[in-house]
């Protein structure tokens, strides 16, 4: 149902956003194309976490992902990406399970992080929030 919802949101972007979003457009095709973890990082995460994952500055700054020991816990990383928290947006409905796993693996193995145990799409599905009815 969640994918179906995202589909409808895509279809009605700009004309009818979901009640929970209000007058903000929802166009954004989830999983429109397969992208590498690096591509997803460059095209999405980098806007806040910055090019070298050094984090932002200012009152609402995103934290550094570079050399971040918290990334050692796969469930921590996935939960943050899927559900968001404290300024981090929720990407459960914006990225496919593959994209989510790929980008999580990318940040866990770059920017001074070397956590080699791979995250799988099964991990993503296990931690994804319940679908909207």
């Amino acid at each position: 149902m969640r994918r179906a919802l995202a589909f409808v949101l895509l279809a009605t972007a700009g004309a009818a956003a979901a009640q929970s979003l209000g007058d903000t457009t929802s166009n954004g095709s989830p999983g429109a194309a397969t992208t590498s973890g690096e591509q997803t990082y460059r095209e999405i995460c980098q806007a806040c976490h910055m090019a070298e994952a050094q984090g932002g500055t200012g009152p609402g700054a995103a934290p550094a992902l570079a050399a971040n020991p918290r990334l050692g816990d796969p469930d921590y990383v996935l939960t943050r990406i899927l559900r968001g928290r404290a300024g981090m947006p929720a990407f459960a409905e914006l990225l496919t399970a593959e994209q989510t796993a790929d980008v999580a693996n990318y940040v866990r193995t770059h920017f001074g992080n070397a956590y080699s145990t791979p995250i799988t799409t099964a991990d993503v599905k296990r931690l994804a929030p319940p679908p909207e009815s």
Partner: peptide
């Protein structure tokens, strides 16, 4: 442009 969803972030980047 009125980009939303994942596109909001690709535009921001």
């Amino acid at each position: 442009a009125y980009a939303g969803g994942a596109n909001a972030y690709t535009f921001a980047a």
